[in-house]
Nucleic acid binder design. Structure first.
Lengths: 241, 241
DNA sequence: CGATGCGTTGATAACTTTCAAATTTAGTGG
DNA sequence: CCACTAAATTTGAAAGTTATCAACGCATCG
């Protein structure tokens, strides 16, 4: 799988230059309050230097303990990072949606594996290319700093989330997804219940039951398993502890 | 409290220059594998630009929602960051020990409050001073990037931790503290049981019970409430899931 | 010496997981 | 296009874990 991915990357990187210019990214990730979205030079660099790779559903983008040679940006679809624990449980680290940059957290070797949740297009950029620029262009380094500190904040939210009850976790998850969704009140989930459970540190049954409860309480609607309509967003927010 | 802290900072900043050169920092934070500890220029800058402020036990270093004007480095003692949730519970974000830099994660406004756990000396540096340098010196920005990505990794570990059982959380906490301790097998805790509980997302009773269990199992010893001796580190590590 | 804060211990209640089964959805081949 | 199979999701009942409430022990400090 590791080799397969590497070959795929290589193949694309050897393609003619026209292919290395990716299509416009999808909806940008939601910005935290107070943050200015600078049309960063990092973005341009990534698009010029990188290659867009298509991953089919469940394909591995990178594996745990692999050398962290690349930085990634989701163009379309969704990517999950995860780690298999000693006892066989899987912990999902993050869900990356279009516009998100990931792989920054690993300086040498990846601590988590990454897989496409749905069919996904990912912009893959050599870290060495970025590093070379970083030492010359301070604004790039600054952008990387801003990006990681934003992820750090998101991770802090995550930590707050995991200390809460099942209902609060699910509610927080829904709010988070709604904020990142293009249509703010209708959430199209790219991930399975198992993914959500492993993300929230719950079992699939608890997630399912909690969603059903929220539906009974008229807070959400579940027209389909992977489509959730927020009916009472205020109530959801208030469940966040 | 907010004003009090601000005044304290200001007072020190106005002191003669000789006072603004801090004593050597304590033990550096534990480095992750594969990371080189560059005797960074950031460190020098901080020491030249910043002021050392002494906080008595439980004094506030900064408050939630305050403007994030400074970056901090623990010189001695310990600092906890925390957030009071809507329902009154407290969630501890992190424990910062000598050598740790904190406050990086908040670009505009602090998401968490920070308090000295014990009497603590903290190097306080104006963010604007750093920012000014960042735009000229790429290596500073790069250091900031490395620092935040390291914290991001630590936070990821934290997320993994919080998905586990009480016993695993406590075991992981002990291992983490041992790694950050100068004497690797004897841990002198600067924080209370309540701090630990709020850090691990458990109750104080569960933490206490789990520690007692570990002692019965001969994995640790508890000569005093805040002193823990690791007897079987391997067993502890294996409990980490 | 009593007061106070911190930590430990015990019993019960609440919540979440586990195990099992039913139900729905999605993918595949005829 | 429909039927069939496999996978995903939901639901139910019992077991396990952690929180809550309450009381006790221990040290520090006036």
């Amino acid at each position: 799988m590791i080799i397969e991915a590497a070959i795929r990357n290589e193949a694309v990187r050897l393609a003619p230059p026209s292919c290395t210019i990716p299509p416009l990214a999808g909806a940008p990730a939601h910005l935290a309050f107070g943050e200015v979205h600078k049309a960063g030079s990092l973005d341009q660099i990534m698009q010029l230097t990188g290659a867009v790779v298509s991953y089919p559903r469940n394909a591995e983008v990178f594996g745990e303990d692999e050398a962290a040679e690349y930085i990634y940006k989701v163009v379309s679809g969704g990517v999950r990072t995860y780690k298999i624990l000693d006892d066989g449980r899987r912990q999902v680290g993050a869900f990356h949606l279009p516009g998100d940059i990931f792989g920054l957290e690993d300086s040498v070797r990846h601590a988590l594996s990454a897989e496409a949740m749905t069919g996904a297009k990912v912009l893959v950029v050599k870290r060495s290319a970025i590093n070379a620029l970083v030492s010359r262009d301070a604004s790039i380094a600054q952008e990387l700093f801003v990006l990681t500190s934003r992820q750090l904040r998101r991770m802090q939210q995550r930590v707050l989330l995991l200390a809460k009850s099942a209902q609060e976790r699910v509610a927080s998850f829904l709010v988070e997804m709604a904020e990142r969704s293009p249509a703010s009140n209708i959430i199209e989930l790219p991930m399975s219940r198992q993914d959500i459970a492993d993300y929230l540190g719950l079992t699939i049954e608890t997630v399912s039951r909690t969603l059903t409860c929220l539906q009974c309480a008229a807070v959400i609607e579940l027209p389909a398993a992977r489509r959730i309509v927020l009916r009472d967003r205020l109530a959801l927010s208030q469940m966040n502890g």
